[in-house]
Amino acid sequence: MSHEATTTDSQPDWVMGLQGADVLYGDAAPPEFTSAPWTVHFSLPSDLSELDGVADPLLFVHAGSAHVRAIESKMDELVTMARAQGRSWTEIGRALGVTKQTAWARLSRIVAEGKTKVIEDAGNGEVVVRSKDDITAGDGAKHDVLQGKAAASTRTTANVFRLLERHGIPTHFVEGVDDVAFRARQVKMIPLELVARRYASGSFRDRFPELTDGARLDELAFEVFEKDDAHHDPLLEFDFDDGVLRRYVPNAKAAAAIGAEAKPGDLIGEEVLGESRYSDVTPDLLAKLRVLTVSSFEAIESAWKQQGGTYIDFKIECGFDCETGELLVADVIDSDSGRLRFGDVDMSKQSYRDGAATLPEVKKKFEEVAALTDRFE
């Protein structure tokens, strides 16, 4: 761990304030590492004109490129470490001597970013799923930043995925990274929200108003919704016999957006399945998605029942492992993923959607749920 080109005196104060700067740029003794040192050595005359007639410059372009790739790979790892420790792109850009936008464009490994999480490429067929403190409702129409929400969400998700793995349910979860992030297999997500319901609530009651709120259903309901915020995630019906995909009004909010005469459960429209965005969804795939959804819900439901909780419903997403092609339960499963009650007390994000709880109260619920999932067996 050394740097011969510069000295302590030539470094800005913020650099010298970083841990290890006294070793890299000063005279402090280096620590004892157990792994072998990683070094790059490449010598050229400072005046490149001296290479004329001695060596073809392409020789050094070729030789140097391998070192550049090696350095870039280490830079990627270092930036990933910095991000995992919570360092901002502004800080990373300052370390590089560029703007945060340039740093992000050059070194960001972001695969996707949503309202509440960021997914970064971690290499080796894996990603890092990093939660945000953002909390939203109404397809993003309602939005707040809830300090500590990311940590609670990640803690809950990690515990739930570990529970599912113990039940033999394949998931993308690999291991935790820190309080707000976990490693997972990189998957090609299927743009469907898969819902299981044990009790009548939410959009289900919008479509079946004759049911009492909280009425236990005769059998576990399985429903499939399109991931489409702009149209409030329509309910889907796959008619494989006729080769037709049908979309239905999912809830009262979507009905109001369509028009005064629209009602939850009304047919929005239909199209040829083979010409839709779901042309690759087959009866076999849908059956497998149903099994994953139902088995996941039942495992989580049982875990909550052991603690006196009632799991009302939940939604999950699935995808195919980008390397192996295996179908996996993916995304996150936290307090935002389903309705959970202890007696008459709602412990999910529903109280935020309804405005029935203050932000501190919502935060407390997220944290209490996360702590309870530590007890999952």
Rank of each mutant, 00 (worst) to 15 (best):
S2Y: 14
E4Q: 12
D9I: 08
P12D: 04
W14T: 04
V15Q: 11
Q19E: 14
Q19V: 09
A36P: 05
P37M: 09
L44S: 04
L44R: 06
S46Y: 10
D47E: 15
E50P: 01
V54C: 05
P57F: 02
L59K: 13
G64A: 07
V68Q: 00
I71K: 01
S73C: 02
M75F: 08
M75D: 01
L78G: 05
L78N: 07
A84R: 15
Q85C: 13
R87A: 14
T90F: 03
T90A: 13
I92N: 04
G93E: 03
R94H: 06
G97D: 07
K100M: 06
Q101F: 10
T102W: 08
I110D: 10
G114I: 08
K117T: 07
I119D: 01
I119K: 02
E120Q: 12
G123L: 07
G123M: 04
N124I: 03
E126D: 06
R130P: 00
A137C: 13
G138N: 12
G138W: 11
G140Q: 05
V145H: 10
G148H: 12
A150P: 11
A152R: 01
T157Q: 01
A158R: 15
N159L: 12
R162Q: 15
L163V: 09
L163Y: 13
E165T: 15
R166F: 06
H167Y: 15
V177T: 09
V180L: 04
A181T: 13
A184E: 05
V187K: 02
V187G: 01
E193H: 13
L194T: 04
A196V: 01
R197L: 09
Y199V: 05
S201K: 05
R205A: 08
D206I: 02
E219I: 01
F225W: 12
E226N: 07
K227E: 02
A230P: 01
H232D: 10
P234L: 10
F238S: 03
D241A: 15
L245T: 14
R246C: 09
P250E: 13
A252Y: 02
K263L: 13
D266H: 10
K288M: 08
E298T: 12
S302M: 08
S302P: 00
T310P: 03
T310W: 06
E317F: 05
F320I: 08
D321Q: 04
T324K: 05
T324N: 06
L327W: 07
V329F: 02
A330Q: 03
S337V: 06
S337R: 08
S337K: 09
R339N: 02
V345S: 15
Q350F: 04
S351C: 12
A356K: 14
L359P: 03
F366M: 11
E368M: 05
V369N: 01
D374A: 09
F376K: 07
